[in-house]
């Protein structure tokens, strides 16, 4: 353990010459103050080669057993990501619960930033991602989980999408990156659409806050009509049916229980019916956006293909495995069960 240089975060970028640039963030021990980290960069054709080059630059033996984060640059992710992840699966010492994320632009600057809240950038990024997972903004995916999903012809993987704000030297989670089989499609869901996707996939809500404006712009204070609320309970049912024309219908029923956290107008109970209607419209619109985006990206995040394989294997056999998702007809149905108004009326 003494001679090991621990790699905590690895970034993969594609250079203009189609070579792989690999960055590794390693902690540097300073007994005086807290941990700093040092970034090692190497350019090679594959991660294995890059590792050999990095080993020459590092002071100890490179050890990736504590590598908990893999950052994929956008340019790299639009090509097939699986082959270069092979080294992470083959090494017995690797941690298979490493998180993955797609970074807008280049991934390398992300590990070179100097964060003010934590001196160890790997810790900072990992905490960022884990707290986003906690608030149900992004799905909880590690390398082991996505391996099964990527190889599944009937399901596609979704990864967190991060951006570096170079002005403030902060990284922020922008949403969910949509993959089609093994490639990043370039499409992503923003931060209002992402929680909804996760709720539609059956996740349990974690105090996700939303706010929307249902007032018309003609009013004097349009801001007064913004209401912020949380989703406290969510119940999803997905029904897959195939009709005679081999057309796949998916009915998505989502039942939500909301709690209002801010309502400038004051009286929640009085406006309850109006709020119910507005919420339902809002969510239905949002769901439509999500599904539209998914189908544009051809990203089967729901696993429709897997369900077809399980329940309608003959239908599945006759399908076009590449484009089947685009032909699925979704009928979302969002029902707001209750609106809780909090301790105030």
């Amino acid at each position: 353990m003494k001679n090991a240089t621990l790699v905590q975060t690895v970034t993969y970028d594609l250079t203009s010459k189609k070579r792989l640039r690999v960055g590794a963030a390693t902690p540097v021990l300073n007994s005086a103050d807290s941990l700093q980290n040092m970034t090692l960069v190497a350019e090679a054709n594959t991660p294995g080669e890059a590792r050999i080059l990095l080993n020459r630059k590092a002071s100890g033996l490179l050890d990736s057993s504590k590598n908990k984060l893999l950052l994929l640059g956008e340019a790299y992710a639009v090509h097939d990501i699986l082959p270069f992840l092979d080294i992470h699966y083959r090494n017995p010492r690797n941690a298979l619960d490493a998180r993955l994320a797609v970074v807008k632009g280049e991934a390398l600057p992300l590990i070179q930033l100097r964060s003010k809240s934590e001196s160890n950038v790997s810790r900072y990024l990992l905490n960022l991602i884990q707290s986003a997972e906690e608030s149900l903004l992004i799905p909880k995916e590690d390398i082991q989980a996505i391996a099964s999903v990527i190889m599944d012809p009937g399901e596609d993987v979704t990864l967190p999408y991060i951006e570096l704000e170079s002005s403030s030297q902060l990284a922020s989670v922008k949403g969910i990156a949509l993959f089609d089989k093994r490639k990043y499609t370039g499409f992503y869901l923003n931060d209002t659409q992402s929680p909804l996707l996760l709720l539609l996939k059956g996740g349990k809500p974690r105090q996700n806050s939303f706010s929307f404006n249902f007032g018309s712009p003609k009013e004097e204070f349009p801001q007064r009509q913004i209401v912020s609320f949380l989703i406290t309970k969510s119940n999803r049912k997905l029904k897959l049916t195939v009709d005679e024309h081999k057309q796949i219908h998916v009915a998505l029923h989502l039942k939500l229980v909301l709690r209002v956290i801010e309502y400038p107008n004051g009286d929640v109970e009085a406006d309850k019916d109006k709020l119910l209607r507005e919420y339902k419209a809002y969510f239905t619109k949002l769901t439509g956006e999500v599904i539209h985006q998914l189908q544009r990206a051809n990203c089967d995040a729901f696993g429709i293909g897997r369900m077809l394989m399980a329940y309608h294997p003959d239908v599945w056999r006759g399908l076009d495995k590449e484009q089947y998702f685009r032909q699925v007809k979704f009928s979302p149905n969002i029902v707001i069960d209750k609106i809780k108004s909090g301790i105030e009326h």
């Binding site: 353990m1 003494k2 621990l6 902690p27 021990l29 007994s31 057993s65 504590k66 908990k68 941690a95």
Partner: peptide, 24 residues
Amino acid sequence: VVAFHFEVLPDELVMPIKTSINEI
């Protein structure tokens, strides 16, 4: 753990222990 399998330690524990055994 320290000689062979330090990946058993959770992330938060690795660095303190590594710091403490580094100069020995």
